[in-house]
């Protein structure tokens, strides 16, 4: 980890400007959410549209453009995109396999004090219920930047989660490329296997350091693509262990933990899984740190949960 701090939204805005310069078909559609596109609006006003506070219209308008060969990107608070426009995403975008990029922002705990209406902890569940949409939850700003570039290389619908405006520690500051559907081992250890995505990668890293200080060495995998899962990597890693832990800033129903469990229950039914995330609760108001603690997803609590899980396993 470096001293560098940056928000995933800033990285996205930088990447989208560069993509706009390279490809004249890249178009942005906003629902009073144009600030997320940064300088794109100023640089390419003829390719920037704002439909007002109307997420359903934003998605359908983008689909209409995609049907005419454009590569539109839409963005809003993840809840208002994934929930309010779910049906437009399903019918207009996914149903026609259109090349529309859906960017849900302020996910996980990053909308903090805005409270439960804004805390996006179920958005992946909605999108995962719709066939054919790639889902990406980048761990940090560096990954968000390369992931943004990568999703425009891919021809089809993608949902990507970003967090808020707040600057966050950059973990993968050396990251140069992003492969959709690929996870990466960021730490190796023999005692436990942790799979994390999005903002939870940072807290899992913290947890792994705490565990290490207590003599527990873990393998930590960053799994930014929640669909399609890196099944090859999961099979490889689970060939020699009997447990797995998933960590996410999302409800344990419908997100990474679900996706991993659904896969392993068919391929490695002997493996026990601990799904760390939000358990069938709505978000609430608080600072990000308060929320992580409150939901048991700060580094220390993750470490304790893993320790307990490992102890119970050996009984």
């Amino acid at each position: 980890m470096s001293e560098l701090k940056k928000s995933t939204r800033t990285s996205f805005a930088e990447a989208i400007v560069e993509l706009g310069e390279k490809n004249p078909d890249v178009v942005t559609v906003a629902a009073d959410s144009a600030s997320r596109y940064g300088d794109f609006i100023k640089k390419f006003p003829e390719r920037s549209f704002n439909v007002g506070i109307a997420e359903q219209t934003m998605v359908s308008v983008a689909a209409g453009m995609a049907l005419c060969g454009k590569i539109p990107v839409v963005t809003s608070y993840a809840n208002f995109l994934a929930f309010r426009a779910a049906e437009q995403i399903r019918v207009d975008v996914a149903g026609s396999k259109l090349n529309v990029k859906l960017i849900g922002t302020d996910t996980g705990f990053s909308s903090a004090w805005l409270g439960f209406t804004h805390l996006a902890l179920e958005d992946m569940g909605v999108i995962r219920a719709i066939p054919g949409i790639v889902i990406i939850d980048p761990a940090d700003a560096a990954e968000a930047y390369v992931a943004t570039k990568a999703i425009f290389e891919y021809n089809g619908p993608v949902y990507m989660r970003l967090r808020g405006r707040k600057e966050e520690p950059v973990i993968f500051y050396k990251k140069k490329d992003f492969k959709i559907g690929k996870g990466e081992i960021i730490k190796e250890g023999k005692d436990a296997l942790i799979i994390a995505c999005g903002g939870a990668v940072y807290d899992s890293l913290k947890a792994s350091e705490i565990l290490q200080s207590r003599g527990i060495k873990v393998t930590l995998v960053n799994m930014p693509t929640v669909r399609p899962l890196d099944e090859d990597l999961l099979l490889e890693l689970t060939s020699s262990v009997d447990n797995i832990i998933t960590v996410e800033h999302h409800n344990t129903t419908g997100g990474l933990g679900s996706a991993v469990a659904e896969f392993l229950t068919e391929k490695r039914p002997q493996i026990r899984q601990l799904r760390l995330g939000v358990k069938n609760r709505f978000g609430t108001a608080g600072s990000e740190d308060m929320l992580k603690k409150g939901f048991g997803l700060d580094g220390e609590t993750i470490a304790i949960s893993i320790e307990n899980f490992l102890k119970n396993r050996t009984k």
């Binding site: 439909v51 359903q56 359908s60 308008v61 689909a63 209409g64 049907l67 005419c68 060969g69 437009q88």
Partner: peptide, 16 residues
């Protein structure tokens, strides 16, 4: 859904 899809297509026509 149709009118909003149509708006997208009509905007694409204008861009092109």
């Amino acid at each position: 859904h149709g009118i909003a899809l149509g708006v997208g297509m009509a905007l694409a026509a204008r861009m092109d």
